[in-house]
């Protein structure tokens, strides 16, 4: 695909489980199990899924913060997964990450100024007086004050810390940023401040985002396209409006219908698809389609055969046998 900044091909990540006295390899957590997609230059791809779906692992694989089991991640014509150390370091200034927990992701013994200056020094982007000037500039960019540079993380609220994390990520002028649940730990009134900031920065620096979240309302707001993960696989991928208005996969439908809307009048009219059962374990995922154990329209083929991710409308992909056998129509579940 032309215009793709990053392209992921058949990416896998298995975490081995060892047990017993001899630490025998007994099984694998199949966190990411064959995932392919591309992100265009300047767009925001939303990645949603429930706990254990593999979305966080996927984000880390793209930056090679975790080694992949196999697959390819092509970023600007280079395979990230086979780069030598020195090349990888250079690449890290182009790809950055913002973490979920603003309390755990900032070193409590460093001042905010030191935290933001560290990547500048490592990548040789500034030295001497330039560093301080750049730190001040970055703090102002994310809506903090220059004097905040001398303070420690514990002196800041959650929202302010998340701004520090954003300033640190932007210090090296990245082109691609993985935002891993960047607003999940924040209160509603603060969440909106950070979302607006991320949008402003994207417009200003032409950033490309992979926005990982479990909150589908936030993703709908910020993303142009959305991928839905379930137990290590992408089950649906589409433009935002197509996905929210006409979800094809039964899981996407159930997921959307489960989100409460803050409007009691609307809520009382809504029909909800309540799924039975729990999310399966990625250690022993169900055979065939992983969703078949909870799917209201599953039939015999679903437990035998794994459905491929197929394009049913331009840019609208889904992995579902039911949809395939019904010429790309979604099952009516409500």
């Amino acid at each position: 695909m032309s215009g793709a900044l990053i392209e992921v091909k058949e990416l896998f990540k298995y975490f081995p489980i060892y047990a017993g006295l001899t630490s025998r390899h007994v099984a694998d957590v199949r966190a990411v199990d064959g995932v392919s997609f591309a992100i265009d230059q300047g767009e925001t791809l939303g990645l949603v899924g429930e706990s254990g779906s593999g979305k966080t692992t996927l984000g880390r694989l793209l930056l090679r913060l975790l080694p992949a089991t196999r697959g390819e991640v092509i970023f600007e014509q280079q395979n990230v997964l086979t780069l030598k150390r020195r090349e990888l370091r250079r690449l890290r200034s182009a790809m950055q990450i913002i973490f979920q927990d603003p309390f755990a992701s900032l070193n409590p013994r460093m001042t905010v100024g030191e935290i933001i200056a560290e990547p500048l020094r490592i990548h040789g982007l500034a030295n001497g007086k330039q560093v301080d000037a750049r730190v001040r500039e970055l703090l102002e960019l994310v809506g903090l004050q220059p004097y905040h540079a001398n303070r420690y993380p514990h002196e800041f609220s959650g929202g302010q810390r998340q701004r520090v994390g954003i300033a640190r990520a932007l210090a090296v002028n990245p082109r691609f940023v993985v935002c891993d649940e960047p607003v999940s730990a924040l209160d509603v009134s603060i969440q909106a401040q950070v979302i607006n900031l991320l949008e402003d920065l994207q417009a200003k620096f032409k950033l490309t985002y992979l926005f990982i979240a479990h909150d589908l309302s936030v993703v709908r707001h910020i993303a142009r396209r959305v991928a839905v993960m379930y137990v290590g696989k992408i089950v649906e991928l589409a433009d935002r409006d197509a996905l929210y208005r006409n979800p094809l996969h039964p899981y996407t439908q159930a997921l959307l219908s489960a989100i409460p809307i803050p409007d009691p009048v609307l809520e009382s009219r809504r029909k909800r698809i309540v799924l039975t059962g729990d999310i399966p374990s990625p250690v022993n995922p169900p055979s065939g389609c992983r969703f078949h154990t909870r799917c209201p329209v599953a039939f015999d083929r679903c437990s035998r055969e794994e459905p491929p991710l197929k394009e049913y409308a331009p840019g609208h992909f889904a992995a579902c046998h039911w949809v395939e056998e019904h010429q790309g129509h979604a099952p009516a579940l409500t």
Binding site: S157, V188, L216, R220, P262
Partner: peptide, 25 residues
């Protein structure tokens, strides 16, 4: 009012800018 305006909603139509509440609790 501010809480409701700052909330991204699933039934959101066209993209609108969120209106956050300024400042801290």
């Amino acid at each position: 009012q501010g809480l409701l305006a700052s909330l991204p909603r699933l039934d959101e139509g066209e993209h609108r800018r969120l209106e956050p509440i300024q400042g801290q609790p």
